[in-house]
Every structure is written in C-alpha cells, then in structure tokens.
Simulated assay, not measured.
Amino acid sequence: MSPEPLLSVRDLRISFGAAQAVRGLSFDVHPGEVLGVVGESGAGKSLVARALLGMVPRSAATGGSVRLRGAADLADERGRRIALVPQDALSALSPVHPVGDQLAAAVRSVRRVSRKEARARAVAALDRVGIPDASRLARAYPHEYSGGMRQRAVIAMATVNEPDVVVADEPTTALDEERREQVLRVLAEQREAVGAALVLVTHDLDVVRGHADRVLVMYAGRAVELGPAEGVLSRPRAPYTAGLLASLPQDGPRRRRLPALPGTPPAPDALGPGCAFAPRCPLAVEQCRTAEPVPQTVDGRLVACHRAAEIPEPLKEFA
C-alpha cells in the first residue's frame, strides 16, 4: 500500500440545522485499496459517500476537507477521477436513452473524443462487466436489461473513464446472495482492471468480509473503529463493532436466539454530551455518559471508546 493517500478526508462535518449528520470524520484511502464503510442505517454512510464526490445537498452546512490527490474541488473530478456506483441502478439510468448512449455521454463529458470513439469505449466497458453481446445490448434501453445487468451497467458507467476512486453506495442492497457475490466480483474485477481504489459503503458486514482491506465503522456520524479488516472483524475493540458482529447469523442450533443490539441509534439532533453509543452499550460507565471519547490507537487500529484498551474481548458482552 502506498504511504501517500489517494483520497484524504479531514474533520468532515455535515449538518442540517441542529442535526449533526457527520461529526469530525477523518480517514484516508490509498491507491488500489478497498475501504469498507459500515454501520447501521442513519450512521451517515451515504452522506459521506456523496461528500466524497462533492454532492452534499446545498441545504447542508459543511466543514473540514475532502481532497483527491490534493484537489479540493471534487465536483470537477466527478466521473473522471472519482465515480459513483449508486444503490438503485434503475433510477440511475435514464429510461429514454439506450444504455450505450448513456455510457458514451459519460465518456464525452470528461474526454475530448469523437462520438465513434466514445461509443467504442462504452461497448468495451459493457463487455468488460460481462454484458453478453455488448455491441447489440448497448442499443437497448434500461427496461430491457435484467436487474443484474442494470447493476453491471452502472458499474460500467462508473469505471468507463478509468477513475482513481470508485465509491459504491450500498451496491448489493436487496440482492440475493448469489447476485450479491456476482456484483462484488464484478466490482473487484473492474477495480483491478482500471487500477482504482474502492470505497464500499454498506450496512452489511458480510459484504466487506473477504472484500475489504480496511474497515471504517461509523455510528451517529463518527468513526468508532478504523483499521485492517481482518483485525476489526475478528477482534473488535469498539463495543459497537462487537455488537454488530454478534448480530450476524452464526452457525449453531437453529433455535438459538440471534443476539441484537438493544435500542436504536440516536437522532442527529438529539445527541448528548457523552458517547452516542452509551445508552445502548452494556459496558458504559459514567465517563461514557459525560465525555465523548477521543480516538486512540489500540491493537493497530483507531478506536473511539473510553474502555477500548482495558477490555480484551468486548464481543462476549453481546453473546
């Protein structure tokens, strides 16, 4: 992994009035790596994905910085050096234009090439993601594609200009296991083909297991744990990460009750002075309720928890 980050996020803050949706988030993405961003719904993951592409709503108040190879104006880099694979492939594609025309338009929006060359690049991108008979299906409309083919088409659109970074926002939501693995495999192949880094945003820890190099776990707009995927997913040091992992289906008796995190995440406009996870955490002490934890390095990863260094196996608390 290159010591120089490709994408740098520092103290990112996004709020809507009193609602603090993202609170002081910092992380790096290095060339060629896969960073998984995980957490429950409402953690701020998709908003961070939009911020990486300069797509934060105008109604939001923002602070901090997001830089791609030092460039801060990411709107100018969108589609060329950084691209998005959206959650809903059908709504991301125009219903009134052939898929190939949409990819060709994406090419010509950032490259000075002829219509013929743009078309050739579009067909090649569709072929690369496994669209059968790509030259013919490039002339088809999105409604003529199956759901899996549409998902492949938006991956082709994101990678057609060979960006440095691909941001995939919940790309496998509502897919069955077989199709999920197909989409993840195509994402991995395209990342390797164009040499891009991948930011994989998901609520599903199983998606990042085996696919991510590092994992960023978010809760209530903050990072609670950030480090190598193998360590974070096998030996979590943040109680919230441990709770998420314990909530996954495990091998064992079918009648065994599935552990679940108690309570619900706090509303962004109702955050107290302490750790946002404290009301749900079985390990919380008085300090957790009065002071927000500062990230500290524990076992080779950053952990925002007052008790991270003193609890050897927080996972057992959620068994």
Rank of each mutant, 00 (worst) to 15 (best):
I131W: 06
I131M: 07
P132F: 08
P132A: 07
P132L: 10
D133N: 15
A134N: 13
A134G: 10
R136D: 14
L137P: 00
L137V: 01
R139M: 11
R139V: 00
R139H: 14
R139T: 15
R139A: 15
H143N: 14
E144W: 06
Y145P: 05
S146H: 09
S146R: 10
G147A: 05
G147Y: 02
G147T: 02
G147S: 02
G147F: 02
G148L: 09
G148T: 06
M149V: 10
M149K: 12
R150A: 05
Q151T: 09
Q151Y: 12
V154D: 01
M157G: 14
V160L: 12
V160G: 11
V160Q: 13
N161M: 11
E162F: 00
P163E: 09
P163R: 12
D164S: 13
V165W: 07
V165P: 07
V165R: 04
V165M: 05
V166L: 00
D169A: 03
E170D: 08
E170L: 03
P171M: 03
T173E: 07
T173F: 04
A174S: 15
D176Y: 06
E177A: 15
E178S: 15
Q182K: 01
V183M: 10
V183C: 07
L184N: 09
R185N: 15
V186T: 07
V186I: 08
L187K: 04
L187F: 02
L187I: 01
A188Y: 01
A188M: 05
Q190S: 11
R191I: 00
R191V: 00
E192C: 00
V194M: 11
G195H: 06
G195R: 07
A196R: 06
A197V: 03
L198M: 07
V199P: 12
L200A: 04
L200Q: 09
V201S: 06
D204R: 13
D204S: 11
L205G: 04
V207R: 13
V207E: 02
V207Y: 11
R209V: 00
A212F: 03
D213H: 15
R214G: 05
V215S: 06
L216I: 04
L216F: 06
L216Q: 03
L216H: 04
V217R: 03
Y219C: 08
R222S: 15
A223D: 10
A223L: 11
V224R: 14
V224Y: 14
E225C: 10
E225Y: 07
L226Q: 01
P228H: 08
A229G: 06
A229V: 01
A229W: 03
E230H: 15
V232S: 05
V232C: 06
L233E: 05
R235P: 00
P236A: 08
R237H: 04
P239T: 09
Y240K: 11
Y240A: 12
Y240M: 12
Y240H: 12
T241N: 11
T241I: 10
A242V: 12
A242F: 13
A242M: 14
A242R: 13
G243T: 06
G243H: 09
L245A: 11
S247V: 12
S247W: 13
L248K: 14
P249I: 12
P249A: 13
D251P: 14
D251G: 15
G252K: 05
P253Q: 01
P253T: 00
R255N: 08
R255G: 07
R255C: 01
R255P: 00
